[in-house]
């Protein structure tokens, strides 16, 4: 499977996915850490991809998504944004609704 297909597979097969540096429990970047914490607080499981461990995805995803930085968060197959957008949605109470709705619909 080529890298584009692998990216599509990650995004399409999970209701909530974060592409981040490190893992939610061992994040390797402050922006990834904050974003993963916001997702954790939504009370549903989510998928994650460590781009430091997958150099192909790391180099291809910015082009695929037309989004230059990490982390990147996808809900229901759509790019939500990076750290700042996710935290702003979290602050507004929107993130929790979006994550719960996506997770519950997929369940």
């Amino acid at each position: 499977m080529d890298v584009q297909q692998r990216i599509r597979e990650h995004i399409a097969s999970q209701p909530v996915v974060i592409f981040m540096k490190g893992s939610p429990d061992t994040p390797m970047c402050g922006f990834s850490a904050r974003t993963a914490e916001a997702l954790k607080s939504c009370g549903r499981p989510f998928a994650w991809v460590d781009v430091l461990a997958d150099p192909e995805i790391r180099s291809e995803l910015p082009r695929y998504a037309d989004w230059p930085t990490f982390p990147q968060i996808y809900i229901d197959g759509e790019l939500v944004g990076g750290c700042d957008i996710t935290l702003q949605l979290h602050e507004q109470g929107e993130l929790e609704k979006m994550v719960q709705q996506a997770a519950d619909t997929a369940a």
């Binding site: 490190g22 390797m28 970047c29 402050g30 922006f31 990834s32 430091l52 230059p68 750290c83 700042d84």
Partner: peptide, 28 residues
């Protein structure tokens, strides 16, 4: 890395400032 806070004038007035950036954790 580019942290972005983008507001309309109305949103900006309602908030009073931006959150701080997180500390680096060494990756990258």
């Amino acid at each position: 890395a580019l942290a972005i806070h983008a507001y309309t004038p109305q949103e900006w007035q309602a908030r009073n400032g931006t959150p701080e950036s997180p500390p680096c954790l060494g990756g990258g």
